[in-house]
Amino acid sequence: MTNAGSAELLLGGIVLVGASVQWLTGMGFALIAVPALVLVIGPAQGVVLANCAAGAISIAGLATGWRRVRIGAMAPLVIAAACTVPAGSWVAARLPEPVLLAGVGILVTVAVAIVMGGVRISALTGTRGAVAAGAVGGFMNSAAGVGGPPYSLYAVNAGWTVREFVPNAQFYGIMVNVFSVAANGAPRLSGTAWGAALAGMVAGALIGRVFASRIPEQWIRRLILALALTGGLTALVKGLQGMG
């Protein structure tokens, strides 16, 4: 197999794992896939591919749960994200690749650490908290492809149940990724790379749906965090090496 063929196979595998996780939990594609994608196809293309894939998976996932979306609660998050996405895109476009790679690693690692610590932030409540979470999430999503953790922290502090969290996470994922793709553009991939990514999304969706009711949520959560932390640290190390 050629190097290009190996890279495309790896790309499809990364998307498959990320898609499986997102179908199982409503979020998590970016935390799983972004650190690996930026290592395989570079920070710029890895981020925009993650934006496209996460948005597409969220659209499919919301098809059956859209009635549970809390539009009133989500509006401040989405509006704030729309305002900060261009800033994240502007910053990412001007950073050297090793710096951007290290930045992605830092953001993923910090986000995982915060989620693992079960942090509760009293400021992330009410409309003001929604605006803050949306603003940070929009910037992070367009700059590094990882916009979910601020939303997660907001939902935790709001006391949302899993039933409330998942459809609203999917709605937020659609909106923030649409904004990010509009700001960053579509990924520039070969036809076979696109085919591998699409195949990974379809296979990941099927796997996620099959195992959604069979795997304890706590096991899934631990796996997501372990993989995301490993990927974030790997991207950080490679970025620092590139700057050396």
Rank of each mutant, 00 (worst) to 15 (best):
A75W: 13
G5E: 12
I106F: 07
A92Y: 07
V91K: 09
G200C: 01
V91A: 10
T109F: 07
T127F: 13
I32L: 03
I121W: 11
L227V: 10
G147F: 11
V17I: 11
A50Y: 06
G173W: 08
I71Q: 14
I57E: 10
Q45C: 08
F165Q: 14
I224Q: 06
A111L: 00
I114T: 15
L153P: 08
C83S: 11
A80T: 05
Q22E: 04
G55A: 03
L240S: 09
M27A: 06
L37H: 06
W160F: 08
G173N: 02
L124K: 00
G195Y: 01
A113Y: 06
A93G: 15
V178K: 09
L240F: 09
L233K: 11
T2N: 15
M243S: 11
F211R: 08
G200F: 02
V112R: 03
A226Y: 08
W160E: 08
A102W: 04
A135Y: 09
A81H: 03
V91N: 09
T234H: 14
S20A: 09
P43G: 00
L227W: 05
I121Q: 12
V115E: 13
R70F: 12
T125P: 00
P96T: 02
G138I: 04
A56Q: 09
L37N: 02
A133I: 02
Y154I: 01
V40N: 13
G242L: 06
L206C: 09
G117W: 12
A63V: 13
V110E: 00
G200A: 05
R128W: 12
L240C: 10
P35L: 02
L223N: 12
G126I: 09
T64W: 14
A75N: 07
V21E: 06
A193Q: 11
I71A: 15
G88Q: 00
G242H: 05
T161S: 12
A132S: 14
V108K: 01
A228P: 04
A53V: 15
F29H: 05
L49Q: 05
Q218M: 15
L16Y: 02
G61A: 00
P35Q: 03
T125Y: 04
L206P: 05
P76N: 01
A60H: 12
A132M: 15
M140K: 10
L153T: 09
